[in-house]
């Protein structure tokens, strides 16, 4: 009983937290707290098997997949408060209230037969007793549930399956394609130049400078270019010049002649 009164407030608080927290990952974590609390409740009521299974299946597998999806959706995606379906909130409230009413009425109608007691139920040990019930009295329900689960799994696979229409491109094919590109268009064979190497700055958003002082566009990730966060290399070179002046060093302004982002894209292959 002490266990219940210790755990119940924590679980209720966590459950309320799920409703009111803004970040989806925080809600998932609070759900994990509720689930683990539930598992401990099972353990307190002499159901060790249910305790282990509750944690392994719900906390360990299902909620983990939840988290997985949430993380892929976005690192800091907060709940949107805009209704996407008209009247969504009203409908949700009505259905929720109806469900609550059904639950209350349903539970109130239940009559519990003579209670045999945990000692008798667990006489053979918790796990064998459960197995005995599952594979005798409830064997049909058990098999039907497993059939349902398998159907769901196969359905998910069928829905996600996609016929491969083109042959799979492997390492060898990619190499051959690069070679063809080199022959036909003179495209450089090797890897792209790394950023910032000639620009006195090694951040990924600083383009490398070509010998004539212009920026090498290919040295910066396309994502950064699309976001517009590429820094100008000569500007940084100016910083360096100012700095070296300040410390009394006679810095030469070799990066000055370059213009940023003029699209000159020199490839070593062009020289031929």
């Amino acid at each position: 009983m002490i266990g219940f009164w210790l755990l119940a407030p924590v679980m209720v608080a966590a459950a309320l937290g799920i409703l009111f927290t803004r970040k989806a990952v925080h809600a998932a974590l609070l759900l994990a707290v509720v689930m683990i609390g539930l598992a401990v409740m099972y353990a307190l009521q002499d159901a060790p098997f249910l305790f282990a299974v509750q944690i392994i299946v719900y906390t360990g597998a299902i909620l983990m997949l939840f988290l997985f999806v949430l993380m892929l959706v976005g690192v800091d995606a907060s709940d949107s408060v805009v209704e996407t379906i008209k009247g969504q909130r009203l409908m949700a409230t009505v259905v929720g209230l109806l469900f609550g009413a059904v639950l209350v009425v349903g539970v109130a109608q239940v009559t519990v037969g003579a209670v045999t007691g945990l000692d008798e139920a667990n006489a053979e040990g918790n796990v064998p007793a459960l197995a005995q019930l599952l594979f005798s009295t409830y064997v049909f329900a058990f098999e039907a549930t497993s059939a349902l689960l398998i159907t769901a799994a196969i359905g998910a696979m069928v829905l996600a399956h996609r016929e491969r229409l083109t042959p799979k491109v492997g390492q060898a094919e990619r190499a051959a394609q690069r070679m063809r590109d080199y022959v036909d268009h003179g495209k450089h064979l090797g890897p792209l130049p790394s950023p910032g190497v000639y620009a006195r700055h090694n951040a990924v958003d600083t383009p490398a400078l070509l010998p004539d002082g212009s920026a090498a566009e290919t040295s910066v990730s396309r994502t950064l270019t699309a976001r517009g966060t590429v820094r100008s290399a000569p500007a940084l070179a100016d910083d360096v010049t100012v700095l070296s002046r300040q410390i009394g060093h006679d810095g030469r302004r070799d990066g000055e002649s370059g213009t940023t982002g003029n699209g000159r894209d020199r490839e070593p292959g062009d020289q031929a």
Binding site: P48, F49, F51, V53, I56, G60, M64, F68, N126, V127
Partner: peptide
């Protein structure tokens, strides 16, 4: 009675730390 399952359950909580 479910000690080995307990180890598995605890290990699956440990994954949360990493994730």
């Amino acid at each position: 009675p479910v000690a080995v399952l307990f180890v598995l359950a605890v290990a699956s909580i440990g994954i949360y730390g990493i994730v």
